[in-house]
Write a protein that binds this DNA or RNA. Structure first.
Lengths: 239, 239
DNA sequence: ACCATAGAAATGTCAGACATTTAAATGGCG
DNA sequence: CGCCATTTAAATGTCTGACATTTCTATGGT
């Protein structure tokens, strides 16, 4: 796919070589890599070069290192939490660097959320409902800052996603929702708009409580419309 | 969120410090970072330590480096393609390392795909339809290997996602779909199952051609059911 | 005015040393 | 014999200094 007219750095080559070994299973989770000195000899490079390669892999959570006698670099078990963090970092930067319009981001976010609404309506537990109601209560506090309101909003929607009971979906979506928070934070939430949003959150929570997928979907649709209206107002107010 | 009982490596701290500067806008796309020697002095560490930090950031595509007189480390413009690649790497490893059941992965994938089907039905262009029909033709070749069939399947579904005309959605979903390919590759596609899948692909393409969102959705639902049946057969055949 | 060449600045790489952490081997003592 | 403190070894973490390589810039000659 990508030519290497100027062959990449040695550390990048070595990192790729080890990455390949992990991806196609020659190195399994928990396996210990050779020591830095051994790797340096194997690849015929110096130890600092090997270290740079290892740091690259560590940055992707592919390996973890331990110091001490039985230490070394180990193939990491990539947890949902770690994958999730990487997803957020990448998605946040992608959004902030590519002049994504509020509309496009909003559309993507709610399309994804509506995708898991039917599952959530089927599988939600009492614990999930409790989270939603707690956040609704938080959002109803009149002296809440805009940032705190947004943060609670993220938690609410993450609760909705988690209610779908599919960790793969949660990982994908929570990243998308959280990455949008900086964009959402630009909005000033008036008292009136908060009331509208909270009312829709209530409709969503009620729909889930009643296992009513279509009602949850329509509430999400209304919330999407309303959020995009707020974004439009923000833009026109600036002009 | 995460305690640091043993403070992290210096290189990790420095990487985080620079990452923060990029994320909250103190460093903008295209900006040049100070030279390695200057960074070393600023952070009171040695050059190799700074270099390890920079390699971490490079591994996340946050920066790119150039050699030569006007060279240095520059804040990278994170393109969709780069973000997409990272997404695939992470998602693939996550799926391979966490014993994700075929059912869960399948459910997530089709939930996401169905999320963009309505958008695709509204916005698909002739170019999108052409991609879908091309892949259907490829899949109809009787002497196609299972791997090639899967690859064409991925391209087909990616075309479907792209037809939604939302780059954020494309980035999120294409990663999820491609990450599932290794799981799909375990399936042996009999001639009969191929016929069924291709028929459903045709229904999807026709639905998009006719701007018929609900028909596309039901076809996707059937395809999900069928795919999960194939996965179940695979498991039972092993027992 | 143009081209070749030398210089400067930056990253890329290497070698060797020392510091620190950690677990295991060792030894003494009850 | 068994338990605890100590030593030892192996590994990563960090530093210093040097040299190689790449690439732009400025200088100089024709």
């Amino acid at each position: 796919m990508k030519n290497t007219p100027h062959p990449a750095d040695l550390s990048a080559q070595i990192a790729q070589s080890i990455r390949d070994a992990i991806v196609d299973g020659r190195l399994l989770v928990g396996d210990r890599l050779p020591s830095e000195a051994e790797l340096a000899e194997q690849f015929s490079v110096s130890r600092p070069t090997v270290r740079e390669a290892l740091k690259r892999l560590a940055a992707q959570s592919l390996i973890r290192t331990q110091r001490g006698a039985t230490g070394g670099a180990f193939v990491n078990h990539l947890s949902y939490a770690e994958a999730h963090n990487q997803q957020i970092t990448t998605a946040t930067l992608l959004l902030s660097m590519n002049a994504i319009s509020f509309d496009v981001a909003c559309e993507a976010r709610y399309a994804l959320e509506r995708a898991c609404a039917p599952l959530a309506a089927r599988r939600r537990t009492a614990a999930h409902l409790k989270i939603l109601h707690t956040e609704i209560a938080t959002q109803s506090q009149p002296d809440l800052s805009d940032e705190a309101f947004c943060a609670s909003d993220v938690t609410f929607h993450r609760g909705l996603v988690d209610a779908a009971g599919n960790p793969v979906l949660s990982y994908q979506l929570a990243g998308a929702v959280e990455a949008m928070q900086p964009l959402m934070n630009m909005i000033t939430f008036t008292a009136r708009s908060r009331v509208t949003i909270i009312a829709l959150h209530c409709r969503i929570a009620d729909a889930l409580e009643g296992f009513d997928a279509s009602s949850a979907d329509s509430a999400l649709y209304r919330l999407e419309e309303y959020t995009r209206d707020l974004g439009r107002d923000l833009l026109s107010a600036r002009a």
